[in-house]
Amino acid sequence: MSVPSTVRFRRWVAIGDSFTEGVGDPDPGRPNGVRGWADRAAAVLAAADPDFGYANLAIRGRKLGPILTEQVEPALALEPDLVSVYAGANDVLRPRVDLDAIVGAYDAALGRLGSSGAQLVVFTAYDPGGAPVFGALRGRFATYNELVREVAEARGATLVDFWRMRAYRDQRMWAEDRMHMSSAGHQQMATAFLDALGVAHDLRPLPLEDPVAASGARRRADAAAWLRRDAVPWVHRRLTGRSSGDALSPRWPSYARPEG
């Protein structure tokens, strides 16, 4: 699974939304039916240390406020020495958002988590520049990400800069819903996370199917299917104040050792 790690963490708690829960990387045998980059990275860390424990409190659809309200205190109660946080992208996608306010709350939460002595890892949000629907929000995402970089630097957090990862311009790194990473995308993120921490590993990119040229008619049909299947339900949930994670619980609420 991995080569020995030169950086040792014994207790990792991951908090956030669908990005960290693992949506887009299906695995029916795991809680909530997904695997994700965090499970993939945890398997590497666990292989290097028989005493390693990993908890994942992330739930899809959560905005930054609920993430901080629901997940920070349970994370601290687990006394981790490593905490990863991805939050805020769901806020940025809303029609109106006060970026300074949400990053201010983010900063305060990182201060609380960091005061426990845990190493912090934070992420910028992805670059939606090539996305047909979310591309119009690229400027807002860029501003949010720069604020996150400032907070990470001030708090001494390790930064995984998703925005600058050009590999995600490849649509094969995204799931069918075009909103979440595919299994290959999650594998790439697990690699980026471990590399940012200086953890030795032997993760390799997952194989990608050769791209197939599609006719204009096929592309239009695929776009129409995506609108019906994914985009319209996503918009409807936001208009009605519901979330895809409303009925879900954290996947790993206490320390576990997911297999690779």
Rank of each mutant, 00 (worst) to 15 (best):
A125R: 01
V133W: 12
A125S: 14
A125N: 02
A105C: 01
A118R: 00
A109Y: 07
G129T: 14
R112P: 00
N90D: 14
F123W: 08
L137V: 00
G135A: 04
L113F: 11
G111H: 11
V92G: 02
G135W: 09
G117Y: 14
D100Y: 04
T124D: 12
G114I: 12
G129K: 05
T124W: 06
Y106I: 13
A108M: 04
A105M: 06
R94M: 04
A108N: 00
I102D: 10
N90T: 12
A118I: 12
A108S: 11
R96H: 06
P132Q: 09
R96M: 11
D100V: 04
G111Q: 08
V121E: 05
Y106S: 05
L110P: 05
R112D: 09
G129E: 14
N90H: 07
G114N: 03
L113M: 15
G114F: 12
S116H: 12
V133Q: 03
G117H: 09
L110A: 09
P95N: 08
T124C: 07
I102W: 08
G129N: 10
V97F: 03
D91Q: 06
I102P: 00
A101K: 07
Y126S: 14
L137Y: 06
G104W: 03
Q119T: 15
A125L: 13
Q119C: 08
V133D: 09
V121P: 01
D98M: 09
D100N: 08
V122G: 01
Q119G: 02
A89K: 00
D100A: 15
D91C: 10
L113T: 02
S116E: 03
Y126E: 15
D107L: 07
V103E: 03
N90L: 14
G130N: 11
G114H: 10
V103R: 05
S116L: 04
L137F: 09
G129V: 13
A136H: 02
P128T: 14
L99M: 02
V92H: 02
D100E: 15
G117N: 13
A101P: 03
V97R: 01
F123T: 13
V122R: 01
L99Q: 06
G135E: 09
V97S: 01
D100K: 02
P95Q: 10
P132D: 12
R94K: 09
A108Y: 00
V103C: 05
G111W: 12
S116A: 15
F134W: 14
F134D: 04
A136W: 03
V92F: 05
D107T: 13
S116F: 06
L93Y: 01
S115N: 06
G104R: 02
R94A: 11
P128G: 04
G135H: 09
A108V: 13
G104D: 05
R112N: 01
R96C: 02
S116D: 10
A105T: 05
D98H: 10
D107R: 15
F134K: 06
I102S: 02
G135Q: 04
D107Y: 08
V121H: 03
G129Q: 13
V121W: 01
L110I: 08
A108D: 15
V97P: 00
N90Y: 11
A105G: 09
V97N: 04
Q119V: 14
S116P: 07
R96G: 01
A131G: 04
D107A: 15
N90W: 13
F123C: 10
F123S: 07
V97T: 12
P95M: 12
P128W: 12
A125D: 09
G104F: 01
D91G: 03
